[in-house]
Design a protein around this nucleic acid. Structure first.
Length: 267
DNA sequence: GACAGGAGACGTCATCCGAT
DNA sequence: ATCGGATGACGTCTCCTGTC
């Protein structure tokens, strides 16, 4: 499943929400899905999603207004019907050129290997985001460059001031930016050389507890997300099977009708 | 049996995005 | 503006299978 085109009118994850039979597809505004060898007709209002196999020269046409699309990796989400979508071999990138006065709008697939014009200024931030691959995280980059757990401070001079506090642990030290600027950290140093940050253990404990909760929630969310994704893919595969069957049936029907037509013509 | 490679599941991080 | 859920990306681990 290298490329998919999905009409997003139905927000349900279940691409099988429509199970139209070939006969049902004969009413209402019809859409035509044409692949190299096959023709499938279906009703846009009932068919929530459709799937195109990769590496086929395919066109999806539906009858009415073209709507904006959003892109996920390898997936086209079509907000409404009525698009002309050309798929192409893997490694190509889909580009949408807004053409308000023309119908239907063309969705173009460009070879990004040959030309880097995939993002233009007039495209929405969302589109731009979707088209960009994620950059490596700063954390990861830092880790690679400097090793783990390196804190980076701005290259300004720091100032340490000492205040006699009467604290048995020793005098209070304040690290701040020069000129009475913002305090970065306050600490005391015991006779054994250990550092104590006031309120430190409590704060750290709280933060670590919050972090644990967050991680636990995210763990569960990730699990659930994967489950849904698997379910979704399974549904898409089922849908492919259904459409293939419909395709076969229609081809058969066409064949029969052609034969019938030829027969009546010769009579 | 040892080993390599692929597939799948998982945990974590970063980011997006809708709700408040 | 902030928060929290959802999800893509990435690294790691485990299991399975084929090859030697």
């Amino acid at each position: 499943m290298d490329s998919m085109v999905e009409e997003n009118g139905n927000s349900s994850l279940d691409p099988l929400s429509d199970q139209t039979s070939p006969s049902e597809a004969n009413s209402g505004t019809s859409a035509v899905l044409t692949t190299a060898a096959n023709i499938v007709q279906f009703i846009p209002t009932q068919v929530s999603q459709s799937v195109i196999q990769a590496n086929q020269s395919s066109v999806i046409q539906t009858a009415t207004n073209l709507q904006p699309m959003t892109l996920a990796k390898g997936v086209l989400y079509v907000n409404k019907s009525n698009s002309v979508i050309h798929t192409a071999p893997a490694g190509l990138q889909v580009k949408i050129k807004p053409e308000p006065n023309t119908t239907p709008t063309q969705v173009q697939v460009n070879d990004t290997n040959s030309e880097d014009d995939s993002i233009t200024d007039d495209e929405s931030p969302k589109r731009r985001r979707d088209l960009l691959t994620r950059r490596p995280s700063y954390h990861r980059i830092l880790k690679e460059i400097s090793g783990p757990d390196i804190a980076v401070l701005p290259t300004t001079t720091l100032q340490i001031t000492n205040v006699q506090s009467g604290d048995p642990a020793g005098s209070l030290h304040t690290i701040s930016t020069p000129g009475g600027g913002s305090t970065i950290v306050q600490y005391t140093q015991g006779q054994d050389g250990q550092f104590f940050v006031p309120g430190g253990p409590v704060l750290a404990e709280d933060q670590s507890r919050k972090r644990e909760i967050r991680l636990q929630k995210n763990r569960e969310a990730a699990r659930e997300c994967r489950r849904k994704k698997k379910e979704y893919i399974k549904c898409l595969e089922n849908r492919v099977a259904v459409l293939e069957n419909q395709n076969k049936a229609l081809i058969e029907e066409l064949k029969t009708l052609k034969e019938l037509y030829c027969q009546t013509k010769t009579d």
